[in-house]
Design a protein around this nucleic acid. Structure first.
Lengths: 177, 177
DNA sequence: CGTTCGTTTGAGAAACCTCAAGGTCTGTGG
DNA sequence: CCACAGACCTTGAGGTTTCTCAAACGAACG
């Protein structure tokens, strides 16, 4: 597990949390910019692909291009959801939605049970992702005890409440084909 | 000019403002979801392309696929910037950044002068985009008189101040090649 | 000339932040 | 085994930003 983020004078904003199997940094290659950074949260195996190499793949192997295009769209959909989350949801709903999405994504790659999964998030990292401060994340997490983040794993105590609170619609995550 | 948005119980969040030449709805086609909506802000000419048609284009005309991939990445970069904007900037910086980006985009398609351009944004629309309320947008706009939004056009009064305030880095917008 | 849409302004409330202190856990070196 | 340091969590008090609700105002339009 890793995270991608942008650094600003006022702090950093975490954009996304790439997990096993995710494509990372495609934007930087195609746009030839380096306006964001990555940081690993666990040990990670990264498979590097050269920039020009990618472009050749896309033009020579169209189906690979289509797959990349699909991956890019899925990525964008996640960022959009993240945007909506920060823009229009309260701290509580926001946190709930974040964990619903993360749980679903980890579940899709077989790394999460229904109500529990491993992930090394601290409240500081959560704050940077959710556009909040660590103290406030803390208060939100304890206010209702919907879930616990401890020792590198998350336990959901009331899945139904969490789902209702977050308004989570995970349609954008699946490769339905 | 148009806008894409998501509807939530607590209001709507505007995701982006497509302008002339932009590809729109690619995500919906590839992901087979319809989790957001579009709304035109001016008269608009829209060129419809069937979903399956697109997939054929990508696989049969690889260079077209590459172009679409590039467009998707640029789109994502804009959403990311929007996310950072809402997550980590104050209302004032946020507003400044929004207008810097919009001006730059319109400039790239020849529809904006240095300090003035046409666009039909109301304070309600701005609020929905910036994750604020209309009243607050109003107060922010008048607090310092950095720019005026009136009768369908925007006039920037102090470009230098606006640029400094926003921390705008437009590298992700250009097709540098 | 009234209606509608958008802007402007105010007062009070809520959400969230800042700063600061103390607590708990875990690994590490003695 | 113990003491300690570092990372993280928890809690409090007070402040700021932003929201909510409400009302008045102006301009475009039929």
């Amino acid at each position: 597990m890793a995270c991608s983020f942008k650094l600003l004078p006022g702090g950093r904003q975490i954009i996304s949390f790439p997990i096993a199997g995710d494509v990372v940094g495609l934007r930087s290659v195609l746009l030839r910019t380096a306006d964001h950074s990555f940081s690993a949260l666990t040990d990670a195996v990264v498979n590097a692909v050269e920039g020009p190499h990618i472009m050749r793949c896309v033009t020579e192997f169209p189906r690979l291009g289509a797959a990349l295009l699909w991956a890019a769209c899925r990525d964008e959909a996640m960022v959009v959801e993240h945007l909506v989350n920060i823009g229009r949801r309260t701290a509580l709903e926001r946190t709930a939605h974040f964990f619903m999405e993360l749980a679903e994504r980890l579940h899709l790659i077989g790394q999460a049970a229904e109500t529990e999964f491993k992930c090394p998030l601290t409240q500081f990292v959560l704050a940077d992702a959710l556009g909040l401060t660590a103290s406030h994340v803390n208060r939100v997490l304890r206010e209702r005890q919907l879930l616990t983040v401890r020792k590198g794993s998350v336990t959901i105590h009331d899945l139904a409440a969490l789902r209702k609170l977050s308004g989570f619609q995970g349609g954008y995550l699946n490769a339905r084909e």
